[in-house]
Nucleic acid binder design. Structure first.
Lengths: 138, 138
DNA sequence: GTAAAAAGGATAAAAAAGGTCTTTTAAGGG
DNA sequence: CCCTTAAAAGACCTTTTTTATCCTTTTTAC
């Protein structure tokens, strides 16, 4: 349950790699793919997705590539995950207000809401800046 | 992300319906299916699954049917969800110790662990007894 | 023995995930 | 200013998973 897809996993690896680069440096998808061990074409699609949402900026043609769309400290893990996996929705009936005809009586409903809230809060609290830091070994 | 499948949703509806019945009363799958609005054959599979794990008891033949395998207060929502959806694993690398070669360096890892822990705790805290209670309206 | 009910196996349609191929855009040399 | 080449963007295809459905078998009460 609640498993991140490969796409989501690759997405995080890729954008964290970008976040580790010097500010303003343009990086090729091929570089990111090699460094993260992800298929280049698949990663390219993921980055397209990021670009549409402004999480990364892209430049086409010779000399093109990608860089972060804003400071690493201004991109949360939640934004990254939701860009690729869609909103955090543990159950269909939380998708839209009123879509769950049983909402008023449904005792499970508040549990999903609670999970949704907790997960969102955890992911909101982590930025790419945090993730790009080298971890203390030992 | 983290969406419960239909199967998981039906499973919860079905077993909560069982939990609402008088203790010891044997219920047909067809009854549960009708009451919950789920295809009978599909629900039957789900209940077979529950039976294997002892969450419900089943009786074959004439006069057969299902009832809870133990008191509703002793069955948690987590047990129900994991019976159908499998363990709560937000990322593949949490599946087994050592399976993530990057674990030591991976800065994302602790975030998934935290999510896993929070979600498990929320689901652990809810029992079928809680879910079977009529909700206060108004 | 017959009918009722769950168990189990096989199959199939639909959706999602994963991956590849073609097109468009842009830079730079001649 | 055109041609070539590098690179992202977008369209397309394949595989796997989900979501079922149907049919046969086993079990049990009467």
């Amino acid at each position: 349950m609640m498993e991140l897809t490969r796409k989501g996993e690759y997405a995080i690896r890729g954008i964290v790699f970008l976040a580790k680069q010097p500010t303003g440096k343009v990086i090729l998808v091929s570089e990111v793919a090699e460094a993260t061990g992800v298929s280049q074409t698949f990663l390219a699609k993921i980055f397209q997705n990021f670009a549409k949402l402004g999480l990364v900026n892209s430049f086409r043609g010779t000399g093109g590539g990608f860089l972060l769309g804003r400071a690493a400290s201004k991109i949360t893990l939640r934004q990254v995950v939701e860009a690729i996996e869609g909103p955090i929705i543990p159950n269909r009936c939380l998708t839209e207000d009123g879509s769950c005809s049983r909402e008023a009586q449904c005792t499970v409903h508040p549990v999903w809401r609670q999970i949704q809230g907790e997960v969102a809060a955890i992911l909101d609290a982590v930025t790419l800046e945090d993730l790009a830091k080298e971890k203390n070994l030992g």
